[in-house]
Design a binder for these strands. Structure first.
Lengths: 248, 248
DNA sequence: AAATATAATGCAAAACATTGCAAACAATAG
DNA sequence: CTATTGTTTGCAATGTTTTGCATTATATTT
């Protein structure tokens, strides 16, 4: 076996599993652990993976604190994303904001869908990068290093240039009367996206229903559809349904 | 058997398997390993495959996708980035374009440097995300899925709002008289960045000197400084130095 | 702090690459 | 037909890289 082949297998193994150990690779490739160690050191230098004690881990463009958030309630978010995707039709233009449920939607976008996605979120952009037919317009602006999205005047002006079909809104907190979030700039972005879309669809794990955050986004009634992972209505969703919001 | 036939078989074997070894080819084609070695060296020169220790690997999965390009000539790019970083002072505002040498510069930016970086490149943005003090302004626009950078009217308008201290220009091709690149939109972006910066610093691995690409960017003379990994001047760099370009 | 596991280092054997050379072969001109 | 030239091929000598093992150093756990 060529060294090149071995390197490819190591990288592949590491990327698909998220990590790999000297032990397992040594057995799998029938070479000593020392050789694997040296291989991984080389691959680390090339930036193809990161060498750690005991083996290697895959390098991810998106840091951990975001990743953690991304992976909480992942099953619920997948259900929500599934429901949301059924609302999208080819040819539409969509706003995606920086929420993690919205990101999940970006990840499962059917490969034959020809849509234009406008976003201020780097993780969303990374997800769409690999999509064959979706077009992406990224909103410029200052970088928020915790949410990995852009904000500020530049971003708001960018949003104002469009009037899109659907805005997929990641919900931080929803009370019976109002939507709110944890960050002033994020709130401003969400407000602008709502104003420049025909229809607003909120994505929300049900634990966020009946919670509040410091920064006001909008009256709940301005949202057209709310998607949660829970199909049978809860008291919270029923109250929102009475306001005329479609619950999915 | 003709040499031509042998070459065809070698390429075919290498492409279908992803790789091939001197040993197996020698047995299969009933010639010595030395001959195979010489064949593969020839085919490598023609670009039909890549010679590696022990055999050859298929060239199909090599540089065309950004994530691969990122890792070619990495050592040279590191040298270039080291030289470039010495030009940066705290307080400056900088344009970084989407070149891979420029990305390397973004990665090694000293942690105490307080600069504002304006870029249209996602990889650069990802690199700067981790930096504690650098501020990042991202230029919105349409996404180019092969270079992972934005382009178009939106991007150009974004650029036009600034007049920065230094533009770090990733060079695709440089001939004695002109800079050029492989993509119309990329060329437009580079032109705009040059116009809206006080000083343009080109980063360029020396194999790109005296090459040409379809889309014109600028007269070479509009660049103030050129950085290559090769410190002792080559005929190519000396010609450029005579045009008044500082060579580092 | 001791015990244990893991990683870096030096080394020698093996695998592989490079170079130079001569034999084999083909093409061309005299 | 023969001499000349140029190319291709295999072989041997020499130089380089890779690899596994033993040793020493460094983390991690108890």
């Amino acid at each position: 076996m060529l060294k090149e082949d071995r390197h490819n297998i190591i990288v592949e193994e590491t990327v698909t599993n998220g990590s790999s150990s000297f032990q397992s690779l040594s057995k799998k490739l029938a070479v000593s652990e020392d050789t694997i160690r040296r291989d991984i050191k080389e691959l680390d230098n090339k930036g193809l993976l990161r060498a750690v004690r005991g083996g290697a881990v895959s390098v991810s463009r998106i840091p951990h604190h975001y990743r953690d958030r991304e992976n909480t309630d992942i099953d619920q978010k997948k259900i929500i994303a599934q429901k949301a995707v059924s609302l999208i039709k080819s040819g539409q233009v969509l706003f995606f904001d920086g929420g993690t449920s919205v990101l999940e939607l970006a990840k499962i976008l059917p490969l034959d869908l020809k849509v234009t996605i406008i976003t201020n979120s780097f993780p969303v952009a990374n997800a769409i990068e690999d999509h064959p037919t979706a077009e992406l317009i990224f909103l410029g602006g200052k970088l928020n290093k915790t949410s990995f999205s852009t904000y500020g005047n530049e971003t708001l002006q960018g949003i104002a240039k469009f009037k899109v079909d659907i805005y997929f809104l990641g919900i931080c907190s929803i009370a019976p009367d109002k939507l709110s979030c944890k960050d002033l700039e994020e709130a401003e972005t969400k407000i602008a996206m709502m104003r420049h879309s025909v229809k607003t669809v909120g994505l929300c794990t049900s634990d966020k229903i009946n919670s509040e955050s410091p920064y006001f986004v909008a009256q709940t009634g301005h949202m057209h559809t709310l998607i949660t992972e829970n199909s049978k209505g809860t008291p919270g969703t029923k109250a929102l349904a009475r306001l005329g919001i479609e619950i999915l």
